[in-house]
């Protein structure tokens, strides 16, 4: 079975990219779909109704959705296998801009919107740095110079990233993503899959329910604002 993990900020066009992928590959592959979100998600029902493929969702609640994805990934692969799938598409929530949900033995796809502002790639560096391929959506809404400037910003974060530009509603430009998915080697041993890169250490006393403002009330991996650009970075 092949595994592709699709990440990207909210409303970037992840589901639109997934839809086009399913539409183009369903003749050749048996596809299963998993959506990971925080509170609510509807994609599983929509995808199941539209394409008649096995589809599920997981809501992470209080946990970082990317962490939740890691927790359930092994079960998800087993489930997709039982459904007879040879391609599992996982769509992440993309809310956590520090984490990146890609694993080994899988294709890491990051989806960004071309109209989301020039600094977006810089703000989601983790999601870009560890991906294999970036899909830039809403390319129908920008002119040539804007495309190239956006592409340059992505390259600043990850110079080696393969970039595919698409109007994800129409499916233009998707042929290069489809090829990357089909060229990705299948999972060899689910037991040995690990998260790419180390997730940031992000536990603090707010995480466990203390609500007072100001560092004076907190302890753990915490720094004062004036000493640290990043307040809660693990040492």
């Amino acid at each position: 079975m092949r595994l592709a993990v699709v990440a990207g900020p909210p409303s970037a066009g992840k589901t639109a990219v997934v839809r086009q992928t399913i539409r183009s590959l369903r003749d050749r592959h048996r596809i299963a779909y998993l959506k990971i979100d925080v509170v609510r998600a509807f994609e599983d029902e929509e995808i199941a109704a539209e394409f008649g493929i096995p589809a599920r969702k997981v809501c992470s609640g209080d946990l970082c959705p990317d962490h939740a994805g890691v927790m359930v990934m092994r079960d998800a692969i087993a489930w997709a296998g039982e459904e007879g799938a040879d391609l599992l598409l996982v769509e992440s929530a993309g809310l956590c801009l520090r984490c990146s949900p890609y694993t080994t033995q899988a294709l890491g796809i990051v989806v960004l919107s071309a109209v989301s502002g020039t600094n977006t790639p810089l703000k989601m560096a983790a999601m870009l740095a560890l991906a294999d391929i970036a899909v830039v959506t809403r390319i129908d809404l920008v002119s040539q110079a804007e495309k190239e400037v956006f592409r340059e910003r992505i390259r600043e974060v990850n110079p080696d990233l393969d970039i595919v530009e698409t109007n994800a509603v129409q499916g233009t430009g998707m042929r290069y993503l489809l090829r990357a998915i089909e060229d990705c080697p299948p999972i060899t041993d689910p037991g040995t899959i690990v998260l790419r890169g180390a997730p940031p250490l992000g536990v603090c006393t707010v995480c466990i329910g203390k609500t007072e403002i100001g560092w004076q009330h907190h302890f753990g991996v915490v720094r004062r604002l004036e000493d640290a650009d990043y307040l809660f970075r693990g040492d």
């Binding site: 989301s116 502002g117 129908d140 002119s143």
Partner: peptide
């Protein structure tokens, strides 16, 4: 080829 779209706003923060 270079396409200039109908969109008349450029959202680059530059």
């Amino acid at each position: 080829v270079a396409l200039i779209t109908q969109n008349t706003r450029c959202l680059a923060d530059l």
